[in-house]
Measured scan of single mutants.
Amino acid sequence: MRVFPVYAPKLIVKHARIFLTGVIWVKDLGRLEFEKGRFLLPRKSLPKVKQAILELNELIEAQN
């Protein structure tokens, strides 16, 4: 598990694309899981977490 002390979308996306499957922890967002290079949306999450995951997945799609 990698810990990101700040929310840096480009760096987080780079990590997810390299490792494809895993878990990261982002300060103020908490634990985020990714599989096959995409972030998974938890069943229950705060609106800011949901927005961050959608933003990260959009960045991943834009890079493909």
Rank of each mutant, 00 (worst) to 15 (best):
E58V: 11
K27R: 05
F39Y: 04
G30A: 03
M1V: 15
R38I: 10
L11F: 05
A52H: 05
R2P: 15
Q63F: 10
N57A: 02
L54M: 11
P47K: 15
Q51R: 14
E61P: 04
L54W: 11
N57P: 00
G22N: 02
L11G: 06
A62H: 14
P42V: 04
L11I: 08
K14F: 06
L20M: 10
L54V: 09
E58M: 09
Q63D: 12
M1Q: 15
V23F: 06
V26L: 03
R17M: 13
K10R: 08
L54F: 13
R17T: 14
S45F: 09
K48G: 07
N64P: 11
R17H: 09
L54R: 14
K27F: 10
M1L: 07
L32E: 00
V49Q: 07
V3S: 05
Q63L: 12
F4K: 00
E61T: 10
N64H: 12
E33N: 15
P9N: 02
Q63V: 10
E61F: 08
K44P: 08
I24Q: 00
W25V: 06
V6K: 08
V49P: 03
L20T: 12
L46C: 08
T21V: 06
P9A: 05
L56Y: 00
L59V: 08
P5G: 07
V26D: 00
F39P: 02
L59M: 13
R31P: 04
R31Y: 12
D28K: 15
V49H: 05
I12A: 01
G30F: 04
A62E: 13
P47H: 12
M1I: 15
L29V: 12
G22R: 02
I18L: 13
V3W: 15
E33G: 09
P42E: 07
N57M: 02
R43L: 12
I18E: 15
N57R: 03
F34I: 05
V26R: 00
E33K: 15
Y7T: 02
A62V: 11
W25R: 05
Q63T: 13
N57K: 01
L20P: 04
I53H: 02
A52N: 03
I60V: 09
L41D: 08
K10P: 09
F4Y: 05
